[in-house]
């Protein structure tokens, strides 16, 4: 089952791209021109996240160099070991509900620290890819229409975030350990 799903992971991108291209042919829309049009945005998105990446990567690099992460590591070690959670991913679990760009910075930092093929990197990638920043979404969407009483929206979002985290730790241990 896991093996099948792993294979599916590799085929899903070609599959989606094929469907998109075939539909473009069917609808007689110019695929190449539309590709170029959309691709132009790639540059601005990458450049836009630079300030966020700098902010969070400087923070985490300093934390590590100062020995603070080591301290945290020693305190949390028994708990994290029990659930097989690499200590590098703990900061990610906090930032991911607060800021998407900051989370990308932490992800890059985990990769830097543990290598591109480590379990920590895979777990961090799944956590990052499967979440949206709850507080940001709430402030943008409710702010846009002037809603001041959020009622249960934030609480439900946070509970779902926590469920997602637990699911990520579990699913990754099934797939990658």
């Amino acid at each position: 089952m896991i093996k099948f799903l792993n294979t599916l992971s590799i085929y899903i991108l070609p599959l989606i791209i094929t469907i998109i291209l075939c539909y473009a042919i069917y609808k007689k829309t110019p695929a190449y021109e539309n590709f170029i049009e959309g691709a132009k945005e790639g540059f601005s998105i990458a450049v836009k996240i630079i300030p966020y990446l700098v902010a969070i990567m400087v923070c985490t690099a300093m934390l590590r160099a100062s020995g603070a992460i080591e301290l945290l590591q020693n305190i949390l070690k028994p708990l994290l070991d029990y659930f097989k959670i690499p200590v590098e991913t703990t900061i990610l679990m906090i930032t991911r509900s607060l800021s998407g760009s900051a989370t990308l910075g932490v992800l890059s930092d985990v990769i830097n620290q543990t290598g591109a093929n480590s379990y920590a990197t895979k777990l961090a990638a799944v956590i990052t890819g499967s979440s949206e920043t709850t507080f940001y979404v709430a402030s943008v969407y409710f702010g846009a229409v002037g809603i001041k009483k959020f009622r249960h929206a934030l609480l439900a979002g946070i509970l779902a975030d926590i469920t997602g985290l637990i699911a990520a730790v579990w699913i990754c241990s099934v797939f990658f350990l």
């Binding site: 473009a24 609808k27 998105i45 990458a46």
Partner: peptide, 24 residues
């Protein structure tokens, strides 16, 4: 790192834009 993202982001946004314009 940010500079390294440009290529893949451009590729994916390009592909998805095809889906957007074609009505998929």
């Amino acid at each position: 790192i940010a500079i390294g993202l440009i290529g893949i982001m451009a590729f994916w946004l390009g592909i998805v834009n095809i889906a957007k314009v074609s009505g998929l």
